[in-house]
Design a binder for these strands. Structure first.
Length: 568
RNA sequence: CGGGGCGUGGCUCAGCCUGGUAGAGCACCUGGUUCGGGACCAGGGGGUCGGAGGUUCGAAUCCUCUCGCCCCGACCA
């Protein structure tokens, strides 16, 4: 491809609306343009990257015998009503009506469509296992699109689904995906971590997310050098147990005027936060509940919800007043009997603790769990960085991270609700056991930029760069030079190298700036001066290292360097 | 949906507070000089100031409504 003919609208300045590096660079380097909030057009450079990513994905999935489909993006409502998700997806689903006033929607994901094919075509366990996938546009009416391609309303997803007769089969299909995902991300040149994920309201047995550590990420992951890694929503740590001194036989009421927070009580009564009970009021399905934690701990709402099995939200101040009869600074579990009390397990076995007295300006000292109140114990707390790893005891790290893939043991949720069954070896009807596995293509692209950029622009991994190599002709008036560059360009093309020829009549400075911006891994500079000595420059984008190469040896050298870098 | 910010030429922004008939830099076109890290000189084209309504002799500027975009939060199979 010749730069002079290619559409690469680079910008000298960063557009005002962009904030994260990938967004700024994708815009500046002429990869994408926004059409509406969370909806982007991919210009030729971005499309080339997307194609490279999908090629890697196809290549790897085909190795495990997965079969590519292409399913509709436009679905009839009935399908989603069957699985129950027409309701549960709520506002996140784009909905429309056809001319006959039939309800339709744009697919957010394709469990329903694949399951409907499976149920009507697969009769026997002998036809299993199957792994089906597609690379398709997905639509989600995000409440808040943000960060360029990281959170959008229309995006490209590779989604695969496995169908097995039983759980053992699912385990095998899941394991295959785990391995294939590692290969895919390795080939895409991403540094990622696999974390245990919260399966959330979705149910299911097991799920893991593939994460790239990045400040632009919206998730937080917790990990240890020993290999333990989990989404913060799911993470656990090993805390040192606290041994309490004995206190009074019965809780004692103390006057604590205007002392509301854990810290204020800590100062006022000289009681460490770790010796207090933090009491939170939550509302789930209109009914209230108490969540208890050690004073110095924080609630993990995801854990609370999975303990409850349904969603819950913090109560509003007036609700707390109505339910307990006291305000948020003076709450405690003692004397509460009508509403469920869920306690973090770190309060188990403790004694002589301090908590609110459910009366404004009063607290209770000497409270002992299981004696002064009764609670149901769960893991409810949010892990903090530096805490001992649950497996090895070394300090845990917490980082922001970007989810680039998710593998999930679905089980029979869809096959049961949609009636997708097969006959097993014993001749019995049994629901298909399913897994689903997703990769967000744009996120792979954006994550590569988030982790691969410098002041001058993008630094692509070789495997997914729009071109492998850029030939820059620094003086287009020098006919010999132009001819030599042209020959090299054609020779490299003949050797199937993705090469871009910067043949524009621009000053060298402009070419260098643009080259660094768009981030092609290697650049060959054809400059008049050095070429007179029979030399050209080989520049590595990532390190900016320059090496003079003899023009006569250029093509073989180029091929061998590119091969070494993993580019065919 | 709550909070904040911003909409002025293709891009970045000034002008708005204190109304008086729209500006800079970059980009673009023409000519010339340049040519190894976003050149310079000269000339030129391009803007219903997001939209609607109102106040006023007069509105980019003040008021009301509305649309769009960004950020924080809520939300996120």
């Amino acid at each position: 491809m010749r730069w002079s003919q290619m559409f690469i609208p680079t910008l000298r300045e960063a557009p005002a609306e962009a904030e994260v590096p990938s967004h700024i660079l994708l815009l500046r380097a002429g990869y994408i343009r926004q059409l509406a909030s969370g909806i982007y057009s991919y210009l030729p450079l971005a499309q080339r990257v997307m194609n490279k990513v999908s090629r890697i994905i196809r290549d790897e999935l085909d190795r495990i015998g997965a079969q590519e489909f292409f399913l509709p993006a436009l679905h009839p409502a009935e399908l989603w009503q069957e699985s129950g998700r027409w309701e549960s997806m709520g506002q996140n689903m784009f909905r429309l009506k056809d001319r006959a006033n039939r309800d339709m929607c744009l697919g957010m994901t394709h469990e329903e469509v694949f399951t409907s094919i499976a149920r009507s075509e697969i009769r026997s366990y002998r036809q299993l296992p199957q792994i089906w996938y597609q690379i398709q546009t997905k639509f989600r009416d995000e409440p808040r699109p943000k960060s360029g391609l990281l959170r959008v309303r229309q995006f490209t997803m590779k989604d695969s689904y496995s169908f097995d007769v039983n759980w053992e089969g699912l385990d095998a299909s899941y394991q295959k995906h785990y391995e294939v995902y590692c290969r895919i991300y390795d080939r895409c040149g991403l540094r990622y971590r696999v974390v245990e994920a919260d399966s959330g309201v979705m149910g299911g047995r097991q799920s893991q997310e593939f994460m790239v550590v990045s400040e632009a990420g919206e998730d937080q992951i917790c990990y240890c050098q020993c290999g333990y890694a989990a989404n913060l929503e799911k993470a656990v740590s090993r805390l040192e147990p606290i041994v309490d001194e004995s206190g009074p036989e019965k809780p004692e009421l103390v006057f604590t005027p205007n002392q509301k927070t854990i810290d204020e009580i800590s100062n006022f009564l000289k009681v460490k936060p770790s010796h207090q009970i933090k009491t939170l009021v939550y509302i789930s399905k209109h009914s209230p509940l108490l969540a208890l934690l050690r004073g110095d701990h924080q609630l993990n709402e995801a854990k609370l919800q999975s303990a409850l099995g349904i969603e819950a939200r913090p109560a509003r101040p007036e609700e707390i007043q109505e339910i307990i009869g006291a305000s948020a600074g003076s709450l405690g579990p003692v004397g509460i009997s009508k509403i469920p009390i869920l306690s973090d397990q770190n309060l188990k076995g403790r004694k002589n603790l301090t908590c609110g007295a459910n009366r404004d300006d009063y607290h209770l000292c000497g409270v002992t769990p299981d004696k002064d109140y009764v609670a149901e114990y769960h893991d409810l707390r949010l892990v903090q960085s530096g805490e001992p790893c649950i497996r090895c005891g070394k300090p845990l790290a917490i980082s922001k991270a970007l989810e680039i893939g998710h593998i999930f043991k679905l089980g029979t949720k869809y096959s049961e609700s949609m009636g997708a069954t097969v006959l097993n070896a014993d001749g019995q009807q049994t629901p298909l056991v399913m897994g689903c596995y997703g990769i967000g293509l744009e996120r792979v692209m954006a994550a590569a930029i988030e982790t691969g950029n410098d002041q001058d622009g993008i630094v692509w991994p070789c495997s997914i760069a729009p071109f492998s190599c850029l030939i820059s002709v620094l003086n287009t008036k020098d006919n010999q030079l132009v001819e030599a560059a042209e020959n090299t360009y054609q020779e490299l093309q003949r050797r199937r190298v993705d090469v871009l020829l910067d043949d524009r009549d621009e000053r060298p400075g402009v070419k260098f700036k643009d080259a660094d911006l768009i981030g092609i891994p290697f650049r060959i500079n054809f400059g008049s001066k050095k070429f007179k000595e029979g030399k050209v420059e080989w520049v590595e984008r990532s390190s900016k290292k320059v090496e003079d190469i003899n023009y006569l040896e250029l093509v073989p050298r180029a091929i061998s360097i590119l091969q070494e870098a993993g580019i065919r």
